[in-house]
Simulated assay, not measured.
Amino acid sequence: MGGTNGETLDRIATDFEDQSGIGVNMEFQDSYENVLTNTLSAFDSGNVSDMLQVDSLFAQQVLDTGQVRRVEEILPDDFDADVFLDNVAEFFTVDGELASLPFNNSNAIMYINRDAFEQAGLDPDDPPRTLAEVRSASRSLVDQGVTQYGITWPNHVWFVETWYGFEGELLTDGENGHGGTPSEFRTPQATYDLYEWWKGMSDDDLYTNPGIEAWGEATSLFIEQEVGMVLTSTASVAGLIADSEDFEVGAAQYPSISETRVGPVIGGASFYVPDGLPEERYGEIGRLLEYMSQPAVQTEWHKGSGYYPITQPSVDSLREDGWFEENPMYGVALEQLQSGDASDPATKRALLGPARNVQTVIQDKSVDILNAADVDAEIEALKTEVDAVLSEYYD
């Protein structure tokens, strides 16, 4: 949580300190991947933080250490976990218990350069909703000389997961790891449709690859108006509004492979608490976790970052105040989340023990697919490699 998001989180921590008298010392560690690496090392050394902000992608990997205490056992007895939105609580509840505290949660959406759309003869109030429409809009932007490319996004597994989720497809068997041991990476027809489109966009210079996990680079391409569209997190809303001084930015729902729109998978992170701390410390941690879930705090976090509010009271408060009517970009991700089917396993992010290794394979092989002469063969190679990672971990 660097930049404006980090500043908002710092204010929340300071307010908690002022109200409770409990000190909070937060350390910025650059990326989710680095936090995971440092967390696993800390478990090995015994020098672990009191709270850990872990990407939802790595949930099972952290739980599998056997060194975390479920937050449901730490939160005050009168804490009502039912305040969390169903689509949020579904993922973070494992074996019937809230394993970690949801906080900065998001889904992937599309941002558009409204000025560029108008210059290319496109309607910014009717943005693309499917991959075919994204290609058409990209062609207009490029052919009219408005932008060099149509669209970009970081090469990150989350975007592939989101496309699967909208199609109602599972990334793995075992209901994405929520209903059994995952052993196989699934490659339905949607996988071939996605990669054929992606490669075609790349071959025709309608898409540019900013790099693996290149979040900042993708955003910069959009801010510098090299592209007219970018797929990234709703957490970028506040920053993009602040940085797009030379054009008007708009937000739209994530484009799906087909007309099917089952729903997005969750993104962002949650707070885990290690086991083995002094018992009195858990009381203080529980108070901070409770504080971070309060409607006023969730509202402050949402307004300062763009992450959607994750409790129903905070959503109700924002709606009553007319916030989403006055700031429609902030409501796009929430609307997308709540329009999804929370009961469909496809909308639950994959819960995989070897998540980081699976992530790396999918991202690396996506690059191979873009450069391949035979897309089908590379997709099969992708499946073979992910299956091997799953087999090595679980067998």
Rank of each mutant, 00 (worst) to 15 (best):
N5D: 13
L9T: 00
R11K: 14
F16L: 06
E17P: 00
V35H: 00
L36G: 01
T37P: 01
Q60L: 11
F79R: 03
D82M: 07
F92A: 05
F92L: 04
F92V: 02
D95G: 06
P102S: 09
R114S: 09
A120I: 10
P124H: 14
D125R: 14
D126Q: 13
E133W: 09
R135E: 08
Q144V: 01
G145P: 11
G145E: 12
T152F: 02
T152L: 08
T162V: 12
E175A: 03
E184T: 11
F185W: 08
A190R: 08
A190G: 15
D203F: 09
D204S: 11
L206T: 05
A214C: 06
E217N: 12
I223M: 11
A242K: 14
D246L: 06
E259L: 03
G263Q: 01
G267N: 03
G268S: 08
A269P: 01
F271E: 01
G276N: 07
G283L: 07
E300S: 10
E300M: 05
W301H: 07
Y308V: 12
E320S: 13
V332M: 08
A333G: 13
A342Y: 08
S343R: 11
Q359V: 00
K365R: 15
V367Y: 04
N371C: 05
E392M: 15
